[in-house]
């Protein structure tokens, strides 16, 4: 199998003074499916590599089934990868913490889920939800410091007055307020990385931006780095420093946000961008780049998974998955149209 390691250098991470906090290399997850012998496998994620610096936002965009959430869940260590490495502060945690994540890893890497209704226990107050991590991770010295710290965290996420909110139960809060509580709960353990899996997609439209702005504020003020999982590429442009596009569990393209959206190279990225509703271009005037739907992930054939839909498909695409090619500073793509020996016309 082709091994693709996208090194930190390929995104010129070395130039930044901020240290790399989290790096994953060749992260792969196959789920066994099928009959008695479980002989078939769903290739949910294949050889995904990236790094996140302190205070940086990397957005992972893609359609359902592209492997976005699997990526976050593997890093959160909610399940074990089939292969690959997860490096947190330079340590390969899959090697050093074989029996599950340590307390220090859990305090360094926190997760916010999509559904703010399902991620809280309806029988416990807001205060309880935030006290638990403070206690488990020994973040306060005295019991009497617990409640003041809870109030402080609630104020940080813009829930005022904190003393009132702390006494409420999840059902008394709106979706946006709950998601802010979820953020406060993640903040309680002083994380360096927050894995945010579609954190705003279930919220009312008028309050989504408020939650994104809050996350941006925490990035700036506390230096939290985010893995921002989303299907909404416009919100990725708004919030993220860099964007990576996944398709059928494979990395397709990555670049600084403006570069990726301004100069998309991969035909799939172009398709994704052309599908975003745009009030300034009527539907019928849109160029139709490609049609169809993502392929089955069960034991996929070799080659590029987008080949079946790609308008610029070549013979080689059905045989070999392209390597990572750097086509501009901080901009890489995996497509046979680019790089030496390619039959394409592109740069």
């Amino acid at each position: 199998m082709t091994k693709t390691v996208l090194t930190a250098e390929q995104w010129k991470l070395a130039e930044s003074p901020d240290p790399v906090v989290l790096e994953v290399r060749n992260l792969t997850k196959h789920f066994p499916v099928g009959g008695l012998f479980r002989s078939k496998h769903v290739h949910a994620l294949t050889n995904v590599s990236f790094a996140i610096r302190r205070g940086e936002v990397l957005a992972v965009v893609g359609e359902s089934g592209s492997g976005k959430s699997t990526t976050a869940r593997l890093i959160a260590r909610l399940m074990e990868p089939t292969s690959g490495e997860i490096l947190f502060r330079g340590q390969n945690v899959l090697q050093t913490e074989k029996r599950g994540a340590s307390l220090s890893y859990r305090s360094g890497v926190q997760m916010i889920f999509q559904d703010p209704f399902g991620s809280m226990n309806p029988t416990h107050s807001v205060a309880h939800h935030i006290m638990r991590p403070l206690q488990i991770h020994h973040k306060v010295e005295r019991r009497s410091d617990l409640l003041p710290r809870v109030h402080e965290l609630l104020a940080t996420v813009g829930l005022n007055p904190p003393a009132d909110i702390a006494n409420k139960y999840p059902h008394e809060l709106s979706g946006g307020q709950r998601q802010r509580v979820a953020i406060a709960r993640a903040l309680a353990v002083d994380p360096e990385i927050v894995l945010a899996d579609e954190p705003i997609s279930m919220l009312d439209v008028s309050i989504r931006i408020g939650v994104l702005n809050l996350m941006a504020k925490l990035k700036k003020e506390i230096g939290i780095g985010y893995l921002y999982i989303t299907h909404d590429i416009a919100s990725a442009r708004y919030f993220a420093d860099r964007i990576m596009v996944l398709y059928a569990g494979q990395m397709m393209e990555g670049a600084d946000s403006d570069e990726l959206i301004g100069n998309p190279a991969h035909p799939y990225t172009k398709l994704l961008l052309s599908a975003v509703p745009n009030p300034e271009i009527a539907l019928g005037q849109r160029e139709v780049v490609a049609r169809g739907e993502p392929p089955s992930l069960i034991d996929p054939p070799p080659g590029c998974p987008f080949a079946a839909r790609c308008p610029q498909v070549m013979d080689v695409c059905r045989k070999v998955m392209p390597e990572v090619q750097t086509i501009a500073p901080n901009h890489w793509v995996r497509c046979h149209l680019y790089g030496e020996g390619s039959g394409g016309t592109a740069a």
């Binding site: 307020q177 439209v205 309050i207 931006i209 442009r237 708004y238 959206i261 961008l273």
Partner: peptide, 18 residues
């Protein structure tokens, strides 16, 4: 409340409250 895909990147305010 909707980030744009094109044009200048502006800080959006959304709508306060719920």
């Amino acid at each position: 409340s909707f980030p744009a895909l094109v044009g200048p990147k502006e800080t959006l305010t959304g709508i306060p409250g719920s």
